[in-house]
């Protein structure tokens, strides 16, 4: 099927999988038994898929591909406030925008690099934690118990809530003087000597990770829960007969069976988290603290607040290149995208 979608069968205890790519060659009974269609009909058949794809293709061109091409062109232009009105007339800047962005000794490049570092750390932590929490919850809720349905519904709420509603609420809770978090940590539990700042300074990184995990773990949970239902019960029963404990079952059955799912899930979470704009923007506003200056917001700030769309586009292009390399590398390493037909 697609690059993300043809998992290898995992280790031994895995059943044949409906999504697995079938051997692409070899005769096929169903095919042989049918009469060959006449030529015009075959032509028609050949045209049909393109017709079906046409609307999707047009929209992708209009909204994703052409704008991206324009964005790349913009990154080679000197598109400052003098030219935004007549941006076609903006002079070519060559590689100047890129040179500024990657000159890590100068402040602009340094700030970009720092923002990039913050984003990487944030992504690793956030995706890792979201996966761990989602996995833990999915495994713990694999067996039925009283209240399971209710709990599952509750766990899905953060994912269902509109991001602005949820993050605005978090920003309300994270206020230093009147927020819930300090009320609990400082006033009720007495864990800190003085109220902590969560929205400015270094701790804002912690806030960012917590809010992001809060929002994304339900997605990991949902996917993993669905995937766990595909693992045949017999495998567990057999393992129990062999005397395997819960931990061993987890290691020998659950994790290997989930491998293909995890490969997709982690990639999706990575891309979403790395490109996240909403959470930092809604939590900190347009001027985020340095320790929470995620790359999307940094680029937004570099283009909109300082009205330098050429530089902003150059940074976006660099970001895109990085994501392309990481994704391609990831797919290569995990062995996806190798087996393909079509």
């Amino acid at each position: 099927m697609t690059a993300l979608d043809t998992p290898h069968p995992p280790h031994p205890p895995h059943p044949p999988h409906p999504g697995d790519a079938a051997p692409a060659d070899g005769p096929e009974p169903g095919r042989r038994s049918r009469p060959r269609p006449r030529l015009p009909a075959r032509l028609r058949r050949a045209g049909l898929p393109y017709l079906l794809l046409l609307p999707a293709l047009l929209l992708e061109l209009l909204v994703h591909l052409v704008p991206m091409a324009v964005g790349i062109v913009m990154s080679f232009k000197e598109l400052t406030q003098q030219y935004i009105r007549t941006w076609g007339d903006a002079p070519w800047a060559g590689l100047a925008n890129f040179r500024v962005a990657v000159d890590f000794d100068a402040p602009v490049g340094e700030a970009l690099l720092r923002s990039f570092g913050v984003t990487c750390a944030f992504t690793v932590l956030s995706v890792g934690l979201a996966w761990v929490v989602g996995m833990a919850a999915a495994v713990l809720m694999q067996e039925n118990f009283r209240g399971r349905g209710l709990l599952r519904a509750l766990f899905l709420v953060p994912y269902a809530l509109p991001v602005y509603a949820a993050v605005i609420t978090w920003s309300f809770m994270l206020q230093r003087d009147n927020g819930l978090v300090n009320h609990v940590l400082h006033e009720q539990l007495g864990l800190t000597d003085s109220p902590t700042f969560w929205l400015i300074g270094d701790n804002s990184f912690v806030s960012l990770v917590v809010v992001s995990v809060w929002r994304t773990w339900p997605f990991a949970f949902l996917i993993l829960m669905a995937a766990l239902q595909n693992i045949p019960r017999e495998l567990y029963e057999a393992a129990q007969v062999d005397g395997a404990g819960i931990r061993q079952q987890l290691r020998r059955i659950t994790l290997p069976s989930l491998r293909p799912v995890n490969q997709v899930l982690v990639l999706v979470l990575f891309l979403w988290t790395f490109n996240d704009f909403n959470v930092p923007y809604l939590l900190f506003g347009k001027a985020p603290p340095e320790s929470a200056d995620l790359i999307s917001l940094h680029i937004y700030q570099s283009s909109f607040a300082t009205w330098d769309f050429g530089a902003g586009s150059a940074m976006s292009v660099l970001l895109l290149l990085f994501l392309l390399v990481v994704t391609a590398g990831y797919l290569l390493v995990t062995g996806r995208g190798r087996k393909h037909d079509g």
């Binding site: 700042f197 400015i200 300074g201 001027a287 603290p289 340095e290 700030q301 607040a305 300082t306 009205w307």
Partner: peptide, 18 residues
């Protein structure tokens, strides 16, 4: 001018935080 507001104002925000 608007760059000045953003950059100096944000620098001061960081100083306040420190």
């Amino acid at each position: 001018e608007s760059k000045f507001e953003t950059l100096v104002g944000t620098a001061m925000k960081e100083l306040f935080a420190e």
